[in-house]
């Protein structure tokens, strides 16, 4: 009996469909594949298979829990993290608030934290909207993957494409005042700026200088398979965001303070802000929203909802006319 006639007879009798063999073998391979592929690759969209082995640090060293920090981790950059594509990233944990110093420096650190978490009260005159720094840098500037201060501090001075020159750390903070807060920056030697720099410096205590720390910035997403679409994004918004930020995106205010910040309109960030770029907003939203459920949206949903949010009206870019 040839294979073909056996196959046909089996198919006819229907006792045993040979297709099952294909399914069993295929299924087993699939499961094995899922288990074998390192977790980093599973979490992101599948990278081109050739890319991984050619990069240093692709030998699969895992993160050993509980080791002293800072510690070098060899990481396989996947396309999703290409912007931060350093083959080597360093793990770091900022000190706990209980360890905050006392004395004059301690006072500056505390004021810095107060300004960062309640900018509306402590740096009122520099702010032109209703946001607080912490709205986009969660956990008082500590949360990894929400552009934490401890990972930023040691990376400046640095050249920035945005203004085409080398920026000090103070100038980087000034950028968020001007665009994200739609205001004007405190002078570099002002009490507010000194406090914010002190707070950042203290959070970064013990971190290596000039080294990309794990958790810096917002983890950039791979290009979406479908072009980001505001109409799809509106649906994502209504299902996952309106509950807190309001159907009109204007946030929720209680007793004069925003519990849930406004995402567009006159009280939100302006057209020159990092968050007004779909790429940044998608990255932030995917890692951090809905609050407490980061990474629960698909990457496509994050792109779409970011497109929707960024297509809404907001204060203009103060640089007007000038390119990006």
């Amino acid at each position: 009996m040839s294979f073909r006639t056996w196959y046909e007879s089996q198919k006819r009798t229907r006792k045993f469909h040979p297709g099952w063999i294909v399914m069993t073998v295929g299924g087993t391979l699939l499961v094995a594949g899922v288990i074998a592929v390192p977790a980093t690759l599973v979490a992101e969209t599948a990278p081109p298979p050739a890319a991984a082995p050619s990069l240093p640090g692709a030998s699969g060293h895992g993160k050993a829990p509980g080791e002293a920090m800072p510690k070098v981790i060899e990481q396989t950059p996947s396309p999703a993290r290409l912007r931060n594509a350093k083959a080597i990233q360093v793990d770091f944990s900022p000190p706990s608030d209980e360890a905050m110093p006392t004395g004059e420096f301690g006072k500056a650190v505390r004021l810095g934290k107060a300004i960062f978490t309640d900018t509306q009260t402590y740096a009122r005159q520099y702010v032109g909207n209703k946001l607080n720094c912490v709205n986009c840098h969660l956990g008082a500037g500590r949360k990894a993957d929400s552009a934490p201060l401890w990972a930023a501090y040691g990376m400046f001075p640095a050249y920035r494409d945005k203004n085409k020159h080398v920026n000090t750390y103070e100038e980087r903070l000034a950028g968020c005042f001007r665009f994200s807060m739609n205001g004007k920056a405190p002078a570099p030697d002002s009490k507010e700026m000194v406090a914010l720099v002190s707070y950042s410096y203290w959070l970064a205590k013990g971190a290596p200088l000039g080294v990309e720390l794990k958790g810096r910035g917002y983890p950039q997403l791979a290009e979406p398979s479908q072009k980001p679409d505001a109409a799809r994004g509106k649906q994502v918004f209504e299902a996952n965001c309106a509950l807190c930020h309001g159907a009109d995106g204007q946030g929720t205010e209680m007793g004069g303070r925003y519990v849930f910040p406004p995402l567009w309109g006159k009280n939100s960030f302006n057209g020159g802000a990092g968050m007004s770029t779909v790429k940044n907003a998608a990255a932030f939203v995917h890692a951090n929203m809905p609050l407490g459920k980061g990474s629960s949206l698909s990457e496509q949903e994050a792109w779409d909802v970011a497109k929707y949010v960024d297509s809404q009206p907001r204060p203009p870019d103060p640089r007007k006319g000038k390119s990006s």
Binding site: S93, L138, G139, R142, K143, A144, C244, V259, L291, G292, G294
Partner: peptide
Amino acid sequence: WTKEMPACFAC
């Protein structure tokens, strides 16, 4: 936030 837990009062 080291375990992705927001403050109760955030919501």
